[in-house]
Design a protein around this nucleic acid. Structure first.
Length: 305
DNA sequence: TTCCGCACCTGCCGGC
DNA sequence: TGCCGGCAGGTGCGGA
C-alpha cells in the first residue's frame, strides 16, 4: 500500500527517468482512472499530448509532474494499489500488465523509456490534468519543485513531515486544538499529510501512545514525540525503498521495498512486541485495523475512539 | 465549524 | 468445486 515513503520512491524514480520527456500520445484503458479529470478521457489526452514533463513533485501522497510552459500539471494519486511504471517495450521481460489503466507514450525520456503506465488493481488511484495555484506561504509547493505552486486539488492538504518548509509547531498546535483521538488526527491529511494506517500505528508504538488518546489532553512534548517518531519511521522506510506486503506496491522499475520486515506492530497480531514481548493486539478502527502493544500503549480511561 | 461514517473499487482468502 | 462474505484502505462527501 503506497504511503509517503513509497510515493517519494516513485517521485525520485520519475525525476530520474522521465522528467524532460514529451508526451507523444495517451491511452486510457479505464475511464474510472481519470474520473477526477474535468472533461473525461479525451480531454485528459488532449491536455497532455505534445507537452513536456518539467519536474516531479510531491506533497504527502500526491504526485505531480508540472507541464513545461503551462500553469498546469499531471496529478497522480496511487490510492491503495496504484503503481506508476516506467516501461520500455523493447526490453526483454517487459509484459503487458493485467491491471494497466492508463498509458502515456513518451519521447525524449532521459532513460530512453517509452511508456509511463498507471497500473492499479483496486482502482482507487487516479490521474488528472489540473491547474497549479500559488502556495499561501510563498514556499515551494512540495518536494522536488522550486515553484511556489501546488495543484489546486492538493492546496487543502497539509505539508508532510519530510517537507523542509513544514512548521512543526503549527502542526502541534493544530493537533492539540482538535477534539478527537490521536490516530484520527494523524490520518487527517489537512493537518499534516503522508501518514497512513501503517505509519500511524508504527509511530504511535514508538511514541508509546494509544491510538484513542484524546488530542486535547496531549502535552506539546507528547505530540512532538509522535511526530518525531512518524518522521523517523518514514525516513527509515524511505532508505529501504518503501514498505511492501505483497505485489501491490513496487517502484517505477517494478521492484518491491523491504521495510515491511522492520515493522514493529503493523500486521503482527498475536506476535510478541519487540520491546516487551506482550502479544500485539488488533482492534477494528475506522473500518480498518489498529495494532498496539497493550503494555507499551495502554488504552486511556478517557479514550476518544 | 468540526467530526464521523460511509461509499467507492477489486482481488484474495477463508468458510460453508 | 463453487459461491459468498469479509477484508484491505485513502479520499471525499454528506450528515450530525
Amino acid at each position: 500500500m503506497p504511503e509517503l515513503p513509497e510515493v517519494e520512491t516513485v517521485r525520485d524514480g520519475l525525476a530520474r527517468l522521465v522528467v524532460g520527456a514529451v508526451v507523444r500520445d495517451v491511452e486510457v484503458f479505464r475511464e474510472y482512472s481519470v474520473r477526477r479529470h474535468d472533461g473525461g478521457p479525451a480531454s485528459f489526452a488532449d491536455q497532455l499530448r505534445g507537452r513536456r514533463l518539467a519536474e516531479a513533485a510531491r506533497r504527502g501522497k500526491f504526485l505531480w509532474l508540472p507541464l513545461e510552459g503551462h500553469d498546469a500539471a499531471l496529478l497522480a494519486h496511487l490510492g491503495m494499489s496504484g503503481q506508476l511504471l516506467v516501461r520500455d517495450p523493447d526490453v526483454a521481460g517487459t509484459w503487458e500488465h493485467p491491471h494497466l489503466r492508463v498509458r502515456l507514450h513518451l519521447v525524449g525520456a532521459p532513460s530512453g523509456a517509452r511508456y509511463l503506465d498507471l497500473v492499479d488493481q483496486r482502482t482507487f488511484g487516479h490521474l488528472s490534468v489540473v491547474d497549479l495555484v500559488p502556495t499561501p506561504d510563498g514556499a515551494p509547493g512540495g518536494l522536488g519543485t522550486a515553484r511556489a505552486a501546488v495543484p489546486e486539488p492538493v492546496a487543502h492538504i497539509g505539508r508532510d513531515l519530510l517537507d523542509p518548509a513544514l512548521d512543526r509547531d503549527v502542526v502541534v498546535d493544530a493537533i492539540r486544538r482538535r477534539r478527537t483521538g490521536i490516530k484520527r488526527a494523524l490520518l487527517d491529511q489537512t493537518v499534516t499529510s503522508g501518514v497512513g494506517n501503517i505509519y500511524a500505528d508504527e509511530s504511535l508504538w514508538r511514541a508509546r501512545l494509544h491510538y484513542a488518546r484524546p488530542t486535547d489532553t496531549l502535552r506539546r512534548a507528547e505530540v512532538h514525540r509522535v511526530l518525531d517518531a512518524a518522521a523517523q519511521v518514514m525516513t527509515e522506510a524511505l532508505e529501504h525503498g518503501g514498505t511492501s506486503f505483497d505485489a501491490l506496491y513496487v517502484n517505477v522499475n517494478g521492484e518491491s521495498g523491504y521495510f515491511s520486515r522492520a515493522l514493529a506492530v503493523y500486521g503482527r497480531e498475536g506476535e510478541p512486541c519487540p520491546r516487551c514481548s506482550t502479544r500485539i493486539r488488533r482492534d477494528a478502527f475506522m473500518n480498518r485495523s489498529a495494532y498496539t502493544c497493550p503494555r507499551c500503549q495502554p488504552r486511556p480511561r478517557n479514550a476518544r475512539w
